[in-house]
């Protein structure tokens, strides 16, 4: 039995970088800052590779949508263990709706048994692509996964919910989105980075895939959050409790 796992990965501003709002309010400065694979996508790649190592999957295909430099992100995915990669090239910033539309085309072409992806990208923090893709494909979804088990054509997913964990069972094919606790991704080691240079990487143009990529949201402005103002100093615990009850109304 063969089962392919498709892992979409996104090139984002590295999580260590302190982002800065552009002076003209048009967005966040992304020129000349370190870019890396979205951390949740690293977790998704790791999970897919583990599924293959356990024998539950037979092939791991990484796909990225973005500028040409996104191939560096795909090379990282290959170094972490993906077997091959697909770059869908575009210079536009795409919304999850458009990304899901492009991924649907790739899913139809590749016919994976599972799409495993990060629950959200740390740049736009949308947390939507996986759910939209599942809806468009008519597949079940297991979002915010903290454990994935594949057996008998179904996936059992432990999901992070408010205050605990929910376990659901999905018929394959399905979409799973990875949460932080799913696993701790391995390093892209130097030998594996060297070997990844030789793994296949296919490039497509987003514009050729016949998907409506037009944005539905217009960015009016991007601003820095207002700085908090210094509050009041109180003299006693009793006074504090009083204020929290009557003024702030939080307890």
């Amino acid at each position: 039995m063969t089962m392919k796992v498709l892992v979409p990965v996104k090139r984002v501003v590295d999580y260590n970088v302190k982002v800065r709002v552009a002076a003209d309010g048009s967005g966040v400065e992304t020129q000349g800052v370190k870019m890396s694979m979205n951390p949740f996508d690293e977790i998704a790649i790791e999970e897919a590779v583990r599924l293959r190592e356990k024998g539950a999957a037979t092939e791991v295909v990484a796909v990225s949508i973005g500028v040409q430099a996104s191939q560096d992100t795909l090379r990282t995915a290959l170094a972490m263990g993906a077997d091959r990669a697909i770059l869908i090239r575009t210079n536009e910033t795409l919304e999850p709706l458009a990304v899901a539309g492009l991924l649907k085309i790739i899913v139809e072409r590749e016919a994976p048994g599972l799409v495993c992806m990060g629950k959200q990208a740390i740049d736009d923090d949308m947390n939507a692509t996986g759910q939209i893709l599942a809806a468009k494909l008519g597949w079940p979804q297991g979002t915010f996964a903290s454990a994935v088990t594949i057996a008998d054509g179904r996936a059992e997913i432990a999901r992070e919910i408010d205050g605990g964990t929910e376990v659901i069972s999905l018929a394959l094919p399905a979409v799973v989105t990875a949460d932080l606790r799913l696993n701790e991704p391995r390093y892209a080691s130097l030998p594996n980075i060297m070997k990844a240079r030789k793994k296949p990487l296919e490039t497509l143009d987003a514009a050729d895939l016949g998907v409506d990529l037009a944005p539905r949201l217009t960015i009016v402005s991007v601003a820095e959050p207002a700085e908090r103002k210094e509050g009041v100093k109180l003299n006693s615990a009793a006074e504090l409790v009083e204020k929290l009850k009557t003024e702030a109304k939080v307890i």
Binding site: E184, P185, R186, Y187, S189, L190, P191
Partner: peptide, 21 residues
């Protein structure tokens, strides 16, 4: 020899240990 990755604070090899090359 490049640095080892994934050594734990106590000096032991963690689950993701990747030896230097």
């Amino acid at each position: 020899i490049t640095g080892d990755m994934g050594i734990e604070r106590d000096g032991t090899q963690g689950g993701n240990f990747a030896p230097g090359m």
